[in-house]
């Protein structure tokens, strides 16, 4: 099997050839500010080149567990207010990659990052050595594989992040909690039992509570680590629907081992294999007409 070790040729930073509705600025203006650069994807000559607004630019990222190099030279643009899915066989490093965005690896000793993940608009390198992981996590939310609400009331779970930030005003808290619960499509089910323990909810409700918990602090990027792998099909459908609506307010990065799910929810898809990026493109392209043989093999179920 042929794999690329150099940065995928499909992704090239260029001046946009055409502005999308997302940005109304002129190219000259864009260059003069610290705002998001635009990256176009040129897959082949027959396709029309589309541009995307970049929320986070992953540039040549390597990640090490001790001596083991788990991620190799990853370069991917993460589109602003779009859903980007990371797919690949288990052990390919997609979760490891996801956890770089909010520096969860810092909780384990002996881990090391190389390269940069530049968050726009303020050009913060998320994995830069001087950057505080806690600050990063305050800006980038995460939803885990297994629903992990705290053993507190529903209200306190959602208010958690706000309280961490020192917010004490009850009225504001209540308002923000309601907003977040509505955002996570849980308000109707939970509004009469806000003081009940979160552990009394069903699995799907718990996961939506975790989404609400993350939304309450208005993250810039929301990371999903296989959010439906512990849920039944109906709960899964609800979460997927929710993710689709979330793209209006937040940039979503989702790891999934379920290719149908990636195809259903994502705008862009990255296929990874053993720590490397094999292919990155619009989801429609990846799932209908991948450029790489390995991607096609995976999508058609030949391995993984």
């Amino acid at each position: 099997m042929q794999r690329t070790t150099e940065a995928p040729s499909a992704v090239r930073a260029t001046r946009p050839a055409e502005e999308t509705a997302l940005s109304k600025e002129s190219p000259a203006n864009a260059k003069s500010t610290s705002g998001a650069p635009r990256i176009s994807i040129a897959v082949d000559d027959t396709r029309q080149v589309r541009t995307l607004n970049v929320k986070a630019a992953v540039d040549n990222v390597n990640f090490y567990y001790g001596e083991h190099r788990a991620l190799k030279n990853l370069t991917i643009p993460i589109a602003d207010r779009q859903v980007t899915a990371l797919i690949g066989p288990s052990g390919c490093g997609k979760s490891t990659f996801l956890r770089c965005f909010n520096r969860m690896h810092d909780l384990q000793p002996g881990t090391r990052y190389e390269g940069s993940i530049t968050l726009h608009p303020d050009n913060l390198n998320l994995i830069g050595p001087g950057v505080d992981p806690i600050e990063v996590r305050m800006r980038i939310g995460m939803v885990f594989q297994k629903p992990n609400p705290f053993p507190k009331s529903i209200f306190e779970n959602v208010a958690y992040g706000l309280r961490l930030r020192g917010l004490r005003n009850r009225a504001t808290l209540a308002e923000e909690v309601e907003k977040a619960l509505r955002g996570a499509a849980l308000w109707d089910e939970a509004k009469d039992r806000l003081q009940d323990s979160a552990l009394a909810l069903s699995g799907g409700q718990m996961q939506r509570l975790c989404i609400a918990r993350a939304l309450a602090t208005k993250p810039e990027i929301l990371l999903f680590d296989e959010p439906t792998s512990a849920l039944d099909p109906i709960a899964t459908a609800k979460i997927e629907e929710l993710i689709s609506t979330l793209r209006d307010q937040v940039t979503v990065l989702i790891v999934t081992h379920n290719m149908q799910q990636a195809a259903r929810v994502s705008d862009y898809t990255a296929f990874m294999y053993i720590g490397e990026l094999i292919e990155f493109d619009e989801a429609a392209k990846i799932f209908t007409n991948p450029s790489k043989k390995a991607t096609e093999d995976y999508i058609t179920g030949r391995y993984g």
Binding site: N29, T33, G35, P121, D132, I134, E135, R165
Partner: peptide
């Protein structure tokens, strides 16, 4: 345009302020 990014900067600055106390 630059107003947008400086607002974002301000927001980040505010986060950092509360954070330094928590880290202390």
């Amino acid at each position: 345009m630059s107003a947008v990014s400086s607002a974002a900067m301000l927001e980040a600055e505010k986060l950092r302020g509360g954070l330094s106390r928590r880290k202390l």
